Simulated assay, not measured.
Amino acid sequence: METNERLDLVRSDRWIAFDRANIVLNRLTSLMEMPRQSRMPGLMVYGSSGIGKTMIAKRMESLYPTQYEADIGVTQTPILLLQAPPAPDERRFYQHILASIGAPMWGRHTVSELEVRALSHLRDMDLKMIMIDEVHNLLAGSYREQRRFLNMLRFLANDLSASLVVFGVNEAVDAIRGDEQLARRLDEHFLPLWEDDIEFSRLIQTLIAAMQLERGSSLSVHSLRTILGMTGGVTSRVFTMVKALAIDAIETGEERITDEAVQAWQPIWAKHSWSIRRQPVPAF
Rank of each mutant, 00 (worst) to 15 (best):
N4C: 00
R6W: 07
R6P: 01
D8E: 12
D13P: 03
D13G: 05
R20N: 13
L28F: 12
M32S: 03
P35L: 14
R36N: 13
P41Q: 12
V45Q: 06
K53G: 10
M55I: 12
I56L: 09
R59P: 03
S62Q: 10
L63A: 12
Y68P: 02
G73F: 05
V74N: 03
T75I: 07
L80G: 05
L80E: 09
Q83R: 11
A87Y: 12
H96L: 15
L98F: 06
S100V: 07
H109E: 11
L114W: 13
L119I: 14
S120K: 10
H121T: 07
R123G: 02
D124N: 10
L127P: 01
K128A: 08
I130P: 00
E134G: 03
G141V: 06
R144I: 07
E145R: 12
Q146P: 01
L153F: 04
F155T: 05
V165P: 02
F167L: 10
G168Q: 01
G168E: 01
I176H: 00
L182Y: 03
L182C: 03
A183T: 00
R185P: 02
F190D: 03
L193P: 00
D197V: 01
E199P: 00
S201K: 13
S201G: 09
L207M: 14
I208G: 06
M211F: 12
Q212W: 09
R215I: 06
S217F: 13
H222F: 11
H222S: 15
L228S: 02
M241A: 07
V242L: 04
I247E: 14
A249L: 06
I250F: 05
T252M: 04
E255V: 08
T258F: 04
A261T: 03
V262D: 05
Q263P: 00
Q266N: 08
I268E: 09
S273M: 11
R278F: 00
Q279M: 15
A283Q: 14
